[in-house]
Design a protein around this nucleic acid. Structure first.
Lengths: 197, 197
DNA sequence: AATAATTAACTTAACGTTCGTTTAACGTAG
DNA sequence: CTACGTTAAACGAACGTTAAGTTAATTATT
C-alpha cells in the first residue's frame, strides 16, 4: 500500500509544527517544509491542496489533546488549593517541555483570523478555561472568575514567554528557567499575593 | 530644503511600525511599506540601506520613551502599595492604548536574535524591570524579586494578549477590555492573592 | 499464479508572481 | 551646478503552485 519512503500526512505535520512555531506562517516556505520532510515541494501538494490548509492541519494537530492532563487535574476532587497547585505545576511543565505549543498559541492569538481563533478557543482554551474559572469561584467567589483566571494563567505563561530575554534582565538566575521553581513561586504568589501571611 | 512630497525617516518608521506589529517582519514587504507611505519602494532605499536596517530603526523608534511614564511612577516616593497600584494602572493603559507596542515586544521576544533581544532589554525592559524588582523587595522581601516581577507584569500583560480570543471564552464580558477594570482587578489580585483577607 | 490495470506517492521542470534590491534618469531647491 | 529625493524599470532569487511523467504497491482479470 505505502512504499517505504512514503511520508504520511501526520509525519509532514509533525515536522511542519516546529517550523511554523519558530518562524510563523509567512516565515516558512513550502520548500523549507519539504526540505525538512525529505521530499520535493510538489509532493506536499499531494497531501494538502495549499499552504493554508497544511498550516491549519498543523495547528489542529499541535493543539489536540494538549490540554488533557490539565483538564484531568481541574476535574479532580482534591481540595481547591491543592488543585490549583497541581494545575500550575502541570501548566509550567507543559509549556516548558513543549515550547512549540506555547509559541503557536501566541502566534495564533496575534495573527489568527476569526475562524482560527475559534479553533484555538475550542481546541485549547475553552474546556481548560471553564475548569479554571470554576476553580477560581471555589477559591474566592468575590473575584470576577474571568479576570482571575486570566491573571493566574498569565502569571504562569509570562515566565516562559520572557525566557529568551531573561539573560539580559537584572536579578535573573539560572534556576528561573526551572519549571518546578516557577511553579512553586507562582502557586505561592497566587494563593498569598503580597500579604506577608 | 525639503520638497513637499519628501518623506522623512521618522515618517516612514511611524508608518512601518504598525505594519510590522500587525504582520511581523516577513509578513511586511518593502513595497507594502512604500505603498502606505505613498512613495515608490525604491525611495525607501534612499533612507535605509536594506529592510533589516529599516526594521531595526522602526523597533528603536517604537520602543524609545515608551517606558518613561512607568519609570516615573516607579521612582516616586509614595507608599509601595500605592506605587504598585499606579504602576499597574499605568501599564494597563499603556498596552491598551498602544497595541502596536505590546505586539512588537511579543514578536521580538519570539523572533529576535541576540542583538535584537538586547535592544529590547536595554530600551524597554531593563530600567523598568529594575524599578519593579525594587518595588517587589519593598513590598515583600521574602519573595524572589525576579520571579515576583515577572508574575506581576505577566498577570497584567496576559489580559491584553488574550484580548482577541476573549469573545470565544466563557464568562467573558465587555468590561474585561476596559483597562481600568483590569487594573483594579490585577492590583487587588497582586496585593491580596486569593487569601480572602 | 501470472499478468494487466489502477492507484498513491513521488519526481523534475516549469509557470507566473512577488520578493529585496539596484540602476539610471528626472525634477527641484539652494 | 550640485545635491537630494524621487521615479520607473529591471535584476535575480524565492515564493506558491501546477503539469507531466516515473515508480512501486495494490487490486482486478484471466
Amino acid at each position: 500500500m505505502r512504499p517505504l519512503n512514503t511520508k504520511s500526512k501526520e509525519e509532514i505535520l509533525t515536522i511542519a509544527i516546529p517550523l511554523f512555531a519558530g518562524s510563523g506562517y509567512s516565515g516558512v516556505s513550502m520548500r523549507a517544509i519539504a526540505l525538512k520532510v525529505g521530499v520535493s515541494a510538489a509532493a506536499l501538494y499531494h497531501h494538502f491542496p495549499d499552504k493554508q490548509t497544511l498550516y491549519l492541519a498543523a495547528m489542529a494537530q499541535a493543539f489536540v489533546d494538549k490540554a488533557d492532563s490539565l483538564e484531568e487535574i481541574l476535574s479532580s476532587r482534591v481540595a481547591p488549593e491543592k488543585r490549583l497547585a497541581q494545575f500550575i505545576t502541570c501548566l509550567c511543565e507543559l509549556v516548558h517541555k513543549d515550547n512549540d505549543f506555547s509559541m503557536l498559541i501566541q502566534r495564533e492569538m496575534m495573527d489568527g483570523d476569526e475562524s482560527r481563533l475559534q479553533l484555538l478557543a475550542s481546541e485549547v482554551y475553552h474546556s481548560l478555561f471553564q475548569g479554571v474559572t470554576e476553580l477560581c469561584q471555589e477559591l474566592d467567589p468575590k473575584h470576577d472568575p474571568y479576570l482571575l483566571a486570566i491573571s493566574i494563567i498569565g502569571s504562569v505563561m509570562y515566565h516562559f514567554q520572557t525566557a529568551a530575554i531573561r539573560p539580559y534582565l537584572p536579578h535573573s538566575k539560572e534556576q528561573h528557567s526551572d519549571p518546578q521553581v516557577v511553579a512553586r513561586h507562582v502557586t505561592n504568589f497566587v494563593l498569598q499575593g503580597l500579604k506577608t501571611g
